[in-house]
Design a protein around this nucleic acid. Structure first.
Length: 325
DNA sequence: TTTGATGATTGCGT
DNA sequence: ACGCAATCATCAAA
């Protein structure tokens, strides 16, 4: 009965998440980022394109031997997931490009400054590290938003209709109310976990912002007060806006929890860095930095099927945490 | 024994 | 009727 529900809901995750563990694409600076990366990998958003990964989640409603009666929805799900995937990669690329451009910009400014004052390689390195740190944080927001979008999308397709519940109940040999309980518990617990995660992320962001500000403050002491504001250094232009987040949200009509404060602190410290190197006005107001859009929509309002839908979650024998943990 | 995860129940608001 | 949030009971792992 419960194990049956598992096999219906979770079999794929067992094969994927477990095998994915420990295979991060990059070297995650902290556990949260690692979790997000794992989730994105498990959902088939990041990592190599695998046909059939991610999409099977939708098929989970009619698994094994039951060739889809809802193939339309499934292809729809696949299409939307693919859209999310596209947006994610496009945004990620933009961020990386922006990071590299901005780093170059700052390096140029420093080079100019080096004509009027000595600039140590250490100082340059410190600047670059700060910038990269900030962009990493922004990337983390992107990853988080993407994870949430996938969760919502899934919930739309899995939890949207009574038929799906009945199907699940039938397949699992349990009652519809048990399925409802399962989803209900998952929703509330996922939300709670996300809340916790958000808190941690805020603390982390605040801490890095303070660190960066301190570093910059030190740098300012060393800096000449008359920083050359040359035309040649010009203004730093971001090449994109990151507006795709709106698309991500419109995909799922998702409204996430507010975390703007932490992001704002990232921006503030970034501004510090920019200011130190000469100009910051051009970056202010750039859509890329108005990351509040990611999260300025208020609170959760809709069902969010947790990633653990695909993980061993109900079996008393194989209790495990959500992938969102 | 404690802790964490999970399923189920209950009360409340819409 | 439905979903949400709080809570309880149970089980397994630490």
């Amino acid at each position: 009965m419960k194990p049956a529900l598992f096999s219906v809901l979770c079999e794929i995750k067992e094969k994927t998440v477990l095998s994915i563990r420990g295979i991060q694409e990059e070297d995650p600076p902290d556990a949260q980022l690692m979790r997000l990366d794992n989730m994105l990998l498990a959902e088939g958003v990041s990592g190599p394109e695998k046909r059939g990964r991610g999409a099977p989640m939708a098929v989970a409603a009619t698994p094994g031997g039951c060739p889809n009666d809802n193939s339309i929805e499934h292809s729809d799900y696949r299409a939307k997931l693919s859209q999310i995937r596209q947006i994610y990669h496009s945004e990620l690329e933009k961020y990386e490009q922006a990071c590299s451009e901005f780093t170059t910009h700052v390096m140029n400014l420093l080079r100019e400054q080096s004509r009027t004052r000595p600039i140590s390689p250490k100082e340059i390195e410190r600047m670059v590290n700060i910038i990269h740190g900030k962009f990493s944080t922004i990337q983390m927001q992107l990853k988080q938003s993407t994870c949430e979008a996938v969760m919502i999308l899934r919930s739309r397709f899995l939890d949207a209709s009574e038929e799906a519940k009945e199907e699940l109940a039938k397949k699992g040999g349990i009652t519809v109310s048990q399925v409802s309980n399962w989803f209900g518990n998952k929703r509330i617990r996922y939300k709670k976990n996300m809340g916790k995660f958000q808190e941690e992320a805020n603390i982390y962001a605040a801490k890095t912002a303070v660190d960066a500000t301190n570093v910059v403050a030190q740098g300012n002491q060393a800096n000449s007060p008359s920083t050359p504001n040359s035309a040649s250094s010009g203004s730093f232009k971001m090449t994109n806006s990151g507006d795709s987040f709106i698309n991500l949200q419109s995909l799922t009509s998702y409204q996430s929890s507010p975390v703007g404060g932490s992001v704002q602190s990232q921006m503030d410290s970034l501004h510090h860095v920019i200011h130190q190197t000469g100009r910051y006005d051009t970056i202010v107001g750039n859509p890329l930095y108005t990351t509040q859009r990611i999260d300025a929509n208020g609170s959760w309002q809709d069902a969010t099927t947790p990633s653990s839908i695909t993980s061993p979650a109900g079996d008393p024998g194989s209790v495990h945490s959500d992938a969102s943990n």
